[in-house]
Design a protein around this nucleic acid. Structure first.
Length: 205
DNA sequence: AGGCCGATATTCT
DNA sequence: GAATATCGGCCTT
């Protein structure tokens, strides 16, 4: 069980190698699930971080980051791409980890169907490469912002509901640090965490 | 293999 | 009106 009430900078490396899953309930009552092993994440430190959406205090979009940990913050990047964050820090303090890339370990067919056009033909290692692509592979929507991210211990969601789950890594995971991608403020901080040499990690454009 | 461009929600100036 | 935690398509080397 990963303690998500820590600051995002402490949580981020612990998420490498962890598996996030989103299960949806279909019309006939059956379930469809995509599971992704995380290989690339970034920490955003709220009021201490000019690159964070929470830097200037809560807005309707970012209010969930100021709430309790173990929820999701989902936002639209450039008005289009749904990017998924894990909310960290205790209730009242804002920080979050952006999920940037991973390896689809189950539900590859569903993840691929969620792509459109020529992108549906990308190799498996690119199915969840980049935050927009990872969010799309998981089927994340704006309505998932604020959803509970369940971990194996403790309370469980009702079985008929869609669920977001987090499974910790089975073994210690190697970790590299680098600069975060696509930001201009506070850009020198090494707050991007990747699994070294993993083929699913995104590369700078 | 690399550069440019359009799409477009939310927030800030 | 501008900037943004991006991506795919289409163009030129």
């Amino acid at each position: 069980m990963i303690d998500l009430s820590q600051p995002a900078l402490d949580v981020a490396p612990l998420l490498l190698g962890a598996v996030i899953s989103h299960t949806v309930v279909l019309d006939d009552g059956s379930r469809a699930e995509v599971r992704i092993r995380l290989t690339e994440v970034e920490a955003y430190m709220g009021p201490d971080d000019p690159a964070s959406h929470a830097f200037r205090g809560p807005t309707p979009r970012t209010a969930v980051m100021f709430g309790p940990p173990s929820h999701l913050y989902v936002y639209l990047s450039y008005g289009i791409h749904r990017c998924v964050n894990v909310v960290c820090s205790p209730d009242g303090r804002a920080s979050a980890v952006l999920l940037r890339a991973g390896e689809v370990v189950s539900g590859e067919d569903l993840a691929r169907r969620r792509r459109s056009g020529a992108a549906r033909q990308v190799p498996d290692r690119r199915l969840a490469c980049g935050p927009g692509n990872l969010g799309q592979a998981l089927g994340a929507g704006l309505s998932d912002s604020g959803a509970v991210l369940w971990q194996s211990e403790g309370l469980c969601p009702p079985p008929e509901a869609a669920t977001w789950r987090l499974e910790p890594p089975g073994s210690p995971t190697p970790c590299s640090r680098s600069r975060r991608v696509g930001i201009s403020h506070n850009a020198e901080k090494l707050w991007r965490f990747t699994i070294p040499d993993d083929p699913t990690v995104s590369r700078p454009r």
